[in-house]
């Protein structure tokens, strides 16, 4: 910290802008209420008192995609719904993230073989950041997935050019 060392009062922190912006982003991920099927019930359970997703700053479930940062695709996606998911995802402002919750959203799950209308994974429609296994995943697993997403956000850089694109 060379230049700034021992220059300020006790309650002043120094950091870099990237870290600060990432910290802001990851501590207030607002998910969109997007319950599709059985997994949505576990998502509701995460939102409630026992598991309390609010501890991670992601408790403000928004009904409108325009106010949301994160799309938790909780459940089975079928062809009729796929186009709507695409549209909703496009409506979300950047930076936006998507979590595929459960076996169905990850890869068709139990409906892989005989489900003629089931999309075999939501990643065929929208890009996915974190996949969560389980049918349905336990609420703890969703929290784990959220923390993984936060790690991912923390590792990204907003101001600096990422090295690999130079």
């Amino acid at each position: 910290m060379g230049l700034f060392e021992k220059q300020f009062e006790d309650n002043v922190l120094t950091t870099n802008v990237d870290w600060l912006l990432n910290w802001c982003r990851l501590s207030s991920i607002w998910p969109m209420t997007f319950g599709l099927a059985c997994c949505a019930i576990e998502m509701m359970a995460v939102g409630c008192a026992h598991h309390d997703i609010d501890r991670f700053g992601a408790g403000a479930f928004r009904a409108s995609p325009r106010q949301a940062d994160l799309m938790i695709v909780a459940g089975t996606v079928n062809f009729k719904m796929a186009e709507r998911i695409k549209r909703l995802y496009d409506q979300m402002p950047s930076p936006k993230y998507a979590i595929a919750m459960g076996a169905c959203a990850t890869g068709g799950g139990p409906y892989y073989k005989y489900g003629y209308t089931v999309v075999k994974g939501v990643d065929r429609v929208v890009p996915v950041d974190v996949y969560i296994a389980g049918c349905p995943p336990r609420p703890e697993a969703l929290l784990e997935g959220l923390m993984k997403l936060q790690e991912k956000i923390q590792a990204s850089s907003v101001i600096r050019k990422p090295i690999h694109t130079v």
């Binding site: 062809f79 796929a82 999309v119 075999k120 065929r124």
Partner: peptide, 8 residues
Amino acid sequence: EYHGISCK
């Protein structure tokens, strides 16, 4: 496939 999404 359906509307460009592959079913396999």
